[in-house]
């Protein structure tokens, strides 16, 4: 399995609408609306890189998403 953090930059006033759409995507484990440079960070777990590319594409076509930045997880420790 491959994990990744995808950071999303949203157009003004579109965050709630984007979150609503993101919640429909099964592979998204966590959605965080954050302050700062980006507006939303999502954590995804997928089977392979192709699936990750598909998810990124799905996010990019959501109305209001102006930019995404994907960080693939190479190693991780979780509580």
């Amino acid at each position: 399995m491959i994990g990744a953090y995808i950071m999303i930059l949203a157009s003004p006033g579109t965050v709630n609408g984007i979150v609503k759409e993101l919640r429909k995507i099964e592979q998204i484990e966590n959605i965080s609306v954050i302050t700062g440079e980006y507006d939303i960070v999502v954590r995804v777990t997928v089977e392979n890189m192709q699936k990750l590319a598909d998810i990124t594409d799905m996010i990019n076509i959501v109305n209001g998403v102006s930019k995404t930045h994907t960080h693939v997880i190479m190693r991780e420790q979780r509580a």
């Binding site: 998204i28 609306v33 954050i34 700062g36 440079e37």
Partner: peptide, 11 residues
């Protein structure tokens, strides 16, 4: 770079 979470949804 620190960014605070305003709202969160988790499966």
């Amino acid at each position: 770079h620190w960014e605070s979470v305003l709202k969160e949804w988790e499966t």
